[in-house]
C-alpha cells in the first residue's frame, strides 16, 4: 500500500515536471507566423482606393493627350490637302506639336512620380499596421513570403495572411 502511494506521488511529480517544462517551452519559444506579401498588398483597402484614384488621374490625362493628338491630325490633314501651303497653319501645327510633346513628357514624369509617391505611402502604412498586429498579438517574428525564395517552407498553420489583412484594413479605417 505504501509502495503504491509512493509510486503515485512519484508519477504525479513527474507529470507536473513534464507539464511545467511544456509551459516553459511554450512561453519562451518565439511566436512566429508568415504572410503572403502579394495577397496582403493587393487586399489592403488603401492600395485599392489609391489604384482607383490613380486610374482616374491617368484617364483624365490620357483624354487631354488624345484630344491634342486629334487636333494635330486634323491640322496635318489640312496642311496636306492645301495646294498652297499656308504658313499660319504650319505655325499652328508646330506650336500644337510642341505643346503635345511637352504635355506628354510632363504627364509621363508626373505619372511615374505619383506611382512612386502612392507606393511609398501605402508601404509606410502597411508596414506600420503589420508591426501593430505583431505587437498586439505578441509575435516575435512575422515573415513575408513573396515567392522569391527568402522563405522556402512554412507550415500552413503559421499562415496568418487572413488575420493580418483583416487587422490592417480595420486599422486603416481608423475604427480601432
Amino acid at each position: 500500500m505504501l509502495l503504491k502511494n509512493k509510486i503515485l506521488i512519484l508519477l504525479s511529480f513527474f507529470l507536473l515536471l513534464v507539464i511545467g517544462y511544456n509551459v516553459y517551452l511554450y512561453t519562451t519559444s518565439p511566436k512566429t507566423g508568415f504572410v503572403l506579401i502579394q495577397e496582403v498588398y493587393n487586399g489592403f483597402d488603401m492600395k485599392k482606393e489609391f489604384e482607383k484614384k490613380y486610374a482616374t488621374t491617368l484617364n483624365a490625362r490620357k483624354k487631354i493627350v488624345d484630344s491634342l493628338t486629334f487636333e494635330l491630325n486634323v491640322l496635318l490633314k489640312k496642311i496636306e490637302t492645301e495646294k498652297e501651303k499656308n504658313k499660319s497653319t504650319i505655325q499652328e501645327f508646330n506650336t500644337k506639336r510642341e505643346e503635345y510633346i511637352q504635355r506628354k513628357k510632363n504627364y509621363e514624369e508626373d505619372n511615374a512620380a505619383l506611382t512612386k509617391q502612392y507606393d511609398q505611402e501605402i508601404l509606410t502604412q502597411l508596414s506600420q499596421y503589420v508591426k501593430d498586429y505583431g505587437e498586439k498579438n505578441h509575435y516575435t517574428y512575422i515573415f513575408g513570403n513573396d515567392g522569391n525564395g527568402s522563405l522556402m517552407y512554412a507550415s500552413d498553420t503559421k499562415n496568418i495572411t487572413k488575420e493580418v489583412l483583416e487587422f490592417i484594413n480595420s486599422k486603416y479605417k481608423g475604427a480601432e
Binding site: 488603401m46 482606393e49 489609391f50 502612392y118 505611402e121 509606410t124 502604412q125 479605417k173 481608423g174 475604427a175
Partner: peptide, 20 residues
C-alpha cells in the same frame, strides 16, 4: 463619421479616423 485627412507634408498618405 469618418474623418479623411490627406497628409502631404510627411508622406503618410490618406489617414482615416472612424467614429462608429
Amino acid at each position: 463619421k469618418t474623418l479623411l485627412i490627406y497628409d502631404r507634408t510627411f508622406n503618410k498618405g490618406l489617414l482615416k479616423f472612424t467614429f462608429t
